[in-house]
Design a protein around this nucleic acid. Structure first.
Lengths: 223, 223
DNA sequence: ATTGACAGACTGTAGGACAATCTGCTTGAT
DNA sequence: ATCAAGCAGATTGTCCTACAGTCTGTCAAT
């Protein structure tokens, strides 16, 4: 058992914080898809040595967030329509699993928390607050994954989600979609409440497929 | 379209080869679970500078193959019973997706190749050649993933599989299991032949669950 | 207009230096 | 004898410098 008061060892090293900062910069859109990340620029931008930058790049490359071409330097991985479709297919499988596992294994407290977060989401209908919405969605997934009690799934889902974040901007801005989203999630919540894992899984997969369809349509429009 | 004659740029850098070497060393079991990987030892073992070792460690850590504890150094990630169960759950979801996608989207040539590899597997029943068996299984999955035509899935499945390799030794050595395995895979093959994606998926998930059960039983015995 | 050579910029790799931290052992007090 | 404090050695964390290898754009020559 790890002490409740143990320091957060994930944060003590500069490397760790650098990886987070770079990841956040990409997820926040400050470093856009396709942007070149020369070592020199990065050392200036984050105020650390070249060695640390190179280590961080390796980490993010392994996560798929960055693409490294030898002797040309890393770039922020660009998502085309095909890659987007593939990401969503895998995400459907993982999110389905997460919902099924949650329905089967989550504790009562975790269930209540999930329901509460959903209520918070519902209360946002009509209001226009993208930041709060994104945060609530993040809470939702965090709770879902924690209840699924599977660190492997958590890791892979998080990695996948990080890559999808760039695309989520597209789905969120699709007006009128939010109420549909709420209905879909509501159905999943009901299935979880009834501990119906297969149904929860099926609904979750359908939900992701619907989101994927929206993204694909966006690609059509911008081509 | 990338030229057929383009050099393999994945291998030109020492870093790239080092990552491969270290990964292979872990997968081959030369670096066992829990083994400590001090930077000094690694520089001597692979004959490269400390910087390269650190970069490679970052990459493999992001893949989950090694665990880094600040100021104590990296170790080969150790799999306990809980982690093993979690790995197999996720693997079930991904392998199910891969089979379904293959059934739906693979070309005729890819189908034929998969069937041929399966025949090769069948011919191994009775003979005792673990190496050839592992290689044939690898070919099987390579073909499966290539037919699923989803690089994201391919990446995640490969990462997952790398972590499971340590455990696969346990399932393979389970005598009498191989003929059952063949039957299970044979059923999947039939479903793929009939282009029945949902069935292929279901069977694949059941197949993984069976393998997971074997592993769990092994954990019981060795405790 | 195409080719070829050159220069500048950037990455790839090595190795050293010092600070921060951990671990185990010794020492000292109770 | 036991336990706490503290010291020493080893290891990692971080930065810096240096040089070789590779890419890209430019400019002259054909």
């Amino acid at each position: 058992m790890i002490s409740k008061y143990a320091l957060d060892r994930d944060d003590v090293t500069l490397s760790g914080r650098l990886v987070r900062s770079m990841r956040d910069a990409i997820l926040a859109g400050d470093l856009k898809g396709g942007a070149r990340l020369s070592e020199r620029e990065m050392t200036e931008m984050f105020g650390v040595s070249r060695g640390l930058v190179r280590e961080a790049v390796q980490t993010l490359a392994a996560e798929g967030l960055i693409t490294v071409v030898p002797h040309k330097g890393p770039t922020v991985t660009l998502l085309d329509r095909h890659a987007a479709a593939n990401l969503y297919r895998v995400r459907g499988a993982l999110e389905g699993l997460a919902c099924a596992e949650f329905a089967t294994r989550a504790s009562d407290a975790q269930r209540e928390e999930l329901f509460a977060i959903f209520k918070r989401l519902e209360s946002m209908l009509g209001k226009e607050d993208p930041n709060a919405l994104v945060e609530a969605k993040n809470d939702f997934y965090r709770c879902l994954l924690s209840g699924a009690d599977n660190e492997v799934l958590e890791l892979m889902f998080t990695q996948l989600n990080n890559r999808i974040v760039q695309l989520r901007r597209l789905t969120l801005s699709a007006s009128g979609r939010f109420s549909v989203t709420l209905q879909e999630i509501g159905a999943i919540i009901d299935a979880i409440r009834n501990r119906d894992a297969p149904l929860a899984r099926e609904l979750a997969e359908a939900h992701v497929a619907a989101a994927a369809a929206v993204v694909q349509r966006r690609f059509d429009n911008s081509d």
